[in-house]
Amino acid sequence: MGDTVVKIENLVKKYKELTAVDHLSLEIRKGEVFGLLGPNGSGKTTTISCLLSLLAFDEGTIELFGKTMTPTSYDIKARIGIIPQNVAVFDELNVYENIDCFCGLYITDKAKRRQYVDEAIAFVGLQDFTKFKPKKLSGGLLRRLNIACGIAHKPELIILDEPTVAVDPQSRNKILEGIEELNKNGATVIYTTHYMEEVEQICSKIAIMDHGKKIAEGTSGELKRMIKNTETVTIEMDEPDQALVETLNRLESVYEVKWEAGKLKIYLAGGEHNLLDIMDLLRTSGVRFGQVTSELPTLNDVFLTITGKELRDKD
């Protein structure tokens, strides 16, 4: 496969009794934005650490750009950019010096490096802060600096490990737009997160992990099609009588009706004009109701259906 950038086969990483990564296989193609989605402790960061040869693993193979990855694969490392979960910059250096320092680990030519650093600063929008020390930057600006340090050398593969943790919405949007732009410019992106909205927004392919295992893989649509639910209708109303619940259950697409916290939840699988049918039925039954909402399934629903638990705690 000429356009396979990352190929992981049967990766196993154990810590004594605990299996952090359990026979994981992944294939990431050139130009993809690959989302690695899973709750905390699901093995995402361990997988990335094995991928970068920062951790030795017990079984399996890892190939990057068609070559086996080892701690001394400096030619491969030169083609990768890493944006770690924690902001990894030097407090003693200013914004420009930090980006120049990390870019300098890859690019030795001064003129070229200067150009790359300027481009990275412009890319993350830190032009007005080049002389600022990291301690003077806000959380969002620090995250942007962290990203600039990882992408300044124009890597072909960019690995972002939860880059939006504790970031304000404005900076989060800027970061996500930036990742999409990097991808448009030709970079392959691996994006680990536990925020399903982000994965849905930017990832062309998603692998969901839990307890070190890949439990599902595909595009957002493919993953959602894996579950029965296609729509959930929520109605604010008084507690329905048993007859109404049974009538609703008899509708063609309805497979479950639940009364939860003052709301009636109707779960549907397939079908067309479901909301209209439900509204008609309620009207003809003389039921008074308030707000009605219809929600399409999310990746959290996928995760919930497969594992029986939420992807992350409700905010």
Partner: peptide, 19 residues
């Protein structure tokens, strides 16, 4: 301590600079 801080060192370990 700055040079050996976990995150900074990880970034350097991931680069093409030989350890």
């Amino acid at each position: 301590t700055s040079l050996n801080r976990k995150d900074q060192k990880m970034r350097i370990e991931c680069s093409s600079v030989k350890m």
